[in-house]
Every structure is written in structure tokens, then in C-alpha cells.
Design a protein around this nucleic acid. Structure first.
Lengths: 368, 368
DNA sequence: CTGAAAGCGCTTACAG
DNA sequence: CTGAAAGCGCTTACAG
């Protein structure tokens, strides 16, 4: 098996061709300190002639580190995860890291095995892409973090250990915006897993609390957007609902469709806002008001976090314990801490409200 | 640098703990032929106790093959590429391959360098994801194929060397469907790069030719879907246009929006069909008729292709020349060959027309 | 069935 | 500034 492939030229070939020792070639390859101009030139030529590239695998073996970043996710087909992944790749490329992607289904299969194998690949670090806030992934975060620098990117809006996508902020802002428009309250159709702590849903709730507006329990949608359509229709039976905040733009589209199908108008009869900033929202009818998240920027941040992980370079003995559990501190954070860390502007990432056609002040006579 | 990380238990540790030689442990790890029950048991225990996992990097060094599949793309944020990637990952996982993703921008930067580095990683094979049919990527395909088993997945509907996404077929079918509805002809709004050979655009053209319908040059859209909206508006100035086939579902949404904004109706005044089967088309108003492509299935096929690459296993001396240039044979294929290979049912993948609200027979009085 | 040895391609001290 | 040697963690013949 395997075998067969023709071996590429090795450092030995270069050394022979250049008439120097392997160590000298190695020195040349690694910055070339302490190297005479003569050798440098002759080696350069040999490298050129042979079209030699150092074997990354061999390097990884001795350094015990493969220049790569392992991305673990349950699904990458959502708009957010994709953008995140793309942002990660772009940033990784700049640092000459290879990015690796591994999907771990929610069917608990042999996740442990998969994860163990991943760790054996000795990546520089691991990014857990958990846009869906899958409990599966979160439960493995700690385990992974024991062996690898790990950062979690999820919906959560938390301060340490994981990067916040700003969903809390977004939920809060979009709800305030709707309230400012004159709506008495805002109804929420949540995406799966979105009713946990620190998410867009929490932001929505907080905005309503602050305004003293009535709070109805959110209706959960699924990743099948036709469910959103059903919800939209259903919601039409409550004339007092004049504003809906949907968990993402696709759900918003579905809800809008449901409403239109019932013969009501958006935004005249009811305003609907989405979330994420999916470009599709620009071209639907009506176009969809949304909260744009800078996914690519966040992905890049995650990579930088890993690249600057406190390690033997910076703080020789700090690694391990210190870095290890950050990822799970999430559980202990509360909103106040959150507010505070936000105030400190740490990890702030540009995101913003995009107002389009699907939202407007309530029609007079409506609202309750 | 690098350093610092605590080394995981090695095969040596296992050998010591089990009281056997390293070779014996290795034998155990690789299937365990010629191993006494006693040793087997004691080694199993040692492995368990130490939570030992073989170092994939070391293995890769000796076998000269890292159990991974390298995916190269210019962009993975389109619906199609994402699904493809996800399909690749799923199939790769079954075979215990790691998948690696590399984006090469269209800005010709240091693509060569990036690609060379990728090759040094010794993946099992390479999948070029070229949904956009970037000439950049295609120009590197041959180069990569010289060192690695390579398969190209693109819009093309070709037989050998690259997997067909069935776009030709789709364009053909969707156009015929529109024609059958009674439209005199079908206008095409193409996605970037889609006016090349063997694509949905070609299928569209062929269907019109067969029907003897008038053929207008397609209007090219960009990846910015607001451009599609402009096109939609523009197209309204031609009342003879009653049916439009858009290059993908997002473009279709944009075109529809443009038409609606002009005060016309879809599908009453003009029918609009999309392409790809993006779920978003289910919840727009109107919902969008489309051609569903089985992206995940195609991704999986690509992986299998690589896994079964004729190599030292199957045909010891065939590799190299044989596998190498398949990828570029594309250029020589013509439609007849295409038809033929399709007839042979090779690489056939389930795709189908999905009829929704955005298409209907032309209103009487319209059509020309 | 089992072990000692060599080697994969590189880097890292260690001597000159 | 330069080279010989050892070693990273495994696998693969080669002897027993």
C-alpha cells in the first residue's frame, strides 16, 4: 500500500549536489545564520535545480509540531460556519499553517477516536467551530484542550477562552432597534440550541427587560427552513405580534414567506428581522433587516490566538494548566462580567445592524 | 519555538511497559499477524493504560504518505463548494483520511509556493474544487497531477479525469422544461465563468438549438447578487422575455427581485428558474424552481476516486503518466463524447429538477 | 512468533 | 563557518 510514489529530492540530494554537508543545507533552510556567502549560493542553486522543498512531515516529526490548525465542527454548511472557515484559512495561510477540517456528527459515534487521531497529527492548535452550540462538541473541548491550544468559536458572547461572535450584542441591538421603531414588544423565533446562555436570544431578552416589554417564550425553529414558514403562518393568528426577530436570515425568509402566504404584509403588518448578514437577504422580497457578523474576522482572530498561544516562547512554564481550561470558563461567566469585558473593548469585532425593507414602524391601529 | 509541548507516549513506552520489543508492538498495531495471544494481550493493556495512539506523522514519514486529502479551491463560500467540501469530509472520514483545505486567491500571488508546500505534505491525493471554473486553478491542475493523484470537480460535465457535477445536463433539462411550458425561448443570466465549455450554459444552448428556439447571448452576473437585481429590472424592458434561466438560485432570487420591483409578476409575467438546489429557494416568495445537484455525493465520489487510484496496489507500474494528465483531457472532449459517456451511465449521480412557484406557462397574449 | 538493525528526512546540539 | 552523530517515532526487511 501507500508506497509507489516516487520520492521527491531530499536534503541529502541537495547536500550532495552542492558539495556540502546535510547540516549546512539545513542551516541554509532555516534562516542561514552562520553561513558563508559561498555555501549559500551553491546551496541555493542546488535547491533551485532540484526544485527541492523540505519535507514538512519530517520537520513535524522532529519538532513534534505539524504546522497546521485543526478545525473541528459539526457542520460547515451554514453561512456562518463557512465564512468562519474561510476566515480561518486565509489567516492560517499568512502564517503558513495548513488547515485541516474535521466534522464530528451529532451521532456520538467514535468522536473520541476521531479526536485522538487529530491530536496525533500534532497541529499547532485546534479551533472548535460550534456555531450550533452542539453540546457534543463542547463536551470534548476540555479533553482536546488538555493536549492542544484550543479556542472555541461559538454563538456565545463571552470573554475569555472563546471568541465572541457578538451574538449577544446583536440580539440586543436588533431588538432595541425594533422597539425604537415603536413596536410594543418583539417576538423571537430561535434557531436550534439558541436558547442557551449568552446568545442572540439572551440579548433579545435583555433588551426587552430593559424596555419593560412583555416577553413571550421564543418559538424554536429547526435547520429546515420550511419549519420557519409554518411558524410564520402560525404567528399570523396573533394580531398583536407586530415584530419578529428570527434567529438567522434564512429563518427570517421562511417566516416572512409564511406571513405573506397568510395574506399579511411585511413590514406593514409585521416587521421581521434576521441575523448573520447572509447576502441572500439583500435580494429577497422584501429584503431582510439583519445583524451582520464579521465571521471572517473572527476566524482570523481565532488563528492569531493560536499563533500567539503562551508557550515555551513567551512564558516557558505557563502552558498547560493555564491555557487548558479557558475554554470552559464560559460556564462560570455571568452577564455582568460580560458587560464588563465588553466595556474593556477586548476582542471587539466590527459587526453592525443592516436595516432593509423587512422592518418598519408598526401600522397605526396595530400594536397592542 | 514549537517545542514545549509534552511528548505523548511513544511506541517505545508501550514496548517497555509490555515487556516486548518495539517491532512486536508495531506488529500489533498493524493488524497483528504472527502474534501470540499472550503478547497481544499484554500489549493491548499497555496501549490502554498509556492511552497510546500511534504518531501519524512518524508513520507518514516512513510510508511517504500522509493519510489526508488536500482540497484546493478559490472560494468555499458558495453553496455548491460548501456542500462539496462537506461531502468530501464525510467520505474521507470513513477512510480515516484527514482533509485539508487550501484557498488560492485569484490574485496569482504565490500560488506555486502554496501548491508546492501542499505537495510536500504528501497527501493521498488532491481534489481541486473549482466550482467557479477559475482558470488559475485549472492551470495548476496539470502541475499538481504530476506529483499527486488529482481529481478536478468543476461545473463541467465531462467524463474522464474530472467528476461531472451534471451542470450540462441540468442546464439542458431545465431549459427543456421551460420550453415545454410553452415559452418561445429562454433567456439566460449566467454566473461568472459560466460561459465556457460544457457548463449549464452549454446545456441551455443545446436545448434551445434542439427546439429551434431563438438564442440571445446570456447576460453575465457577478457574485454580487445585487447585480442580478439590476439585470432583472433591465430585462423587464423586453416584454418578449417570458422565461429566464439563472445561473444559480441566488442569482435567480436577485433577478426575481428586480422584476418584482419593476411591478411585474413572477411567474405570471415571467418565469424564473435557478440552479443548484439551494434550500433558500424553498422559502423565498415565490419559491424558486431549480435543478438540484447532489454535491455531497459528488464530493464523496471524488474521495473514492482518489482512494482507488491505480497505484502500486492495483497496477504496479501504471501510475504516473496514466493518472497524470487525465485532468486536462477535458480540453479535448467534445459534446458527442460527452453524450456517449453519459449514455454509458458512468459516474452518474442523482440530480433532478425541482419545480416550484417561480415558473409557469406564459400568460396568453405574451410570448412572441 | 520475536527482536535487533537500518532507515524515512529532517534538526539539534557538539566538536572542530 | 562547517560537519559527524544522534535522535524524532515509526515500519520494514532480516535473522533467529
Amino acid at each position: 500500500m501507500a508506497a509507489g510514489r516516487k520520492r521527491a529530492p531530499s536534503i541529502k540530494d541537495v547536500a550532495r549536489k552542492a558539495g556540502v554537508s546535510v547540516s549546512t543545507v539545513s542551516r541554509y533552510l532555516n534562516g542561514g545564520r552562520n553561513l558563508s556567502e559561498g555555501k549559500r549560493k551553491v546551496i541555493a542553486e542546488a535547491v533551485e535545480d532540484l526544485n527541492y522543498r523540505p519535507n514538512t512531515i519530517a520537520r513535524a516529526l522532529v519538532s513534534n509540531e505539524f504546522q497546521s490548525i485543526a478545525v473541528i465542527a459539526t457542520d460547515i454548511s451554514l453561512y456562518g460556519s463557512m465564512q468562519l472557515l474561510q476566515g480561518i484559512e486565509l489567516a492560517a495561510r499568512r502564517r503558513h499553517y495548513l488547515v485541516t477540517v474535521t466534522l464530528v456528527g451529532n451521532g456520538h459515534e467514535k468522536v473520541k477516536e476521531t479526536v485522538d487521531q487529530l491530536i496525533q497529527n500534532r497541529p499547532v492548535g485546534c479551533i472548535i467551530l460550534d456555531v450550533e452550540r452542539s453540546s457534543l462538541l463542547h463536551s470534548f473541548a476540555g479533553y482536546i484542550a488538555q493536549s492542544l491550544p484550543t479556542v472555541i468559536v461559538d454563538e456565545a458572547d463571552l470573554a475569555s477562552g472563546s471568541l465572541r461572535v457578538g451574538a449577544y450584542e446583536g440580539g440586543y441591538q436588533i431588538t432595541k432597534y425594533l422597539l425604537r421603531l415603536g413596536h410594543k414588544t418583539v417576538f423571537h423565533v430561535s434557531i436550534p440550541e439558541d436558547d442557551k446562555k449568552f446568545t442572540r436570544c439572551l440579548g433579545w431578552r435583555r433588551a426587552l427587560e430593559e424596555a419593560g416589554a412583555p416577553i413571550e417564550e421564543p418559538l424554536p425553529c429547526t435547520w429546515d427552513f420550511r419549519k420557519a414558514e409554518q411558524i410564520g403562518r402560525y404567528l399570523c393568528s396573533f394580531p398583536e405580534i407586530t415584530a419578529i426577530f428570527a434567529g438567522n436570515d434564512e429563518v427570517a425568509a421562511g417566516v416572512i414567506r409564511g406571513i405573506l402566504l397568510e395574506g399579511k404584509k411585511v413590514p406593514e403588518d409585521v416587521s421581521v428581522a434576521g441575523f448573520d448578514g447572509n447576502p441572500i437577504g439583500e435580494v429577497t422580497v422584501p429584503s431582510i433587516t439583519t445583524w451582520r457578523q464579521n465571521f471572517q474576522g473572527i476566524g482570523a482572530k481565532a488563528v492569531e490566538r493560536l499563533a500567539h498561544w503562551p508557550d515555551s516562547d513567551d512564558q516557558p512554564e505557563t502552558k498547560g494548566v493555564d491555557g487548558t481550561h479557558k475554554a470552559s470558563e464560559e460556564e462560570e461567566l455571568d452577564l455582568d462580567q460580560l458587560q464588563q469585558s465588553r466595556a474593556m473593548g477586548d476582542e471587539q469585532i466590527s459587526s453592525r445592524l443592516i436595516i432593509r425593507e423587512s422592518t418598519a414602524p408598526p401600522q397605526s391601529g396595530h400594536g397592542r
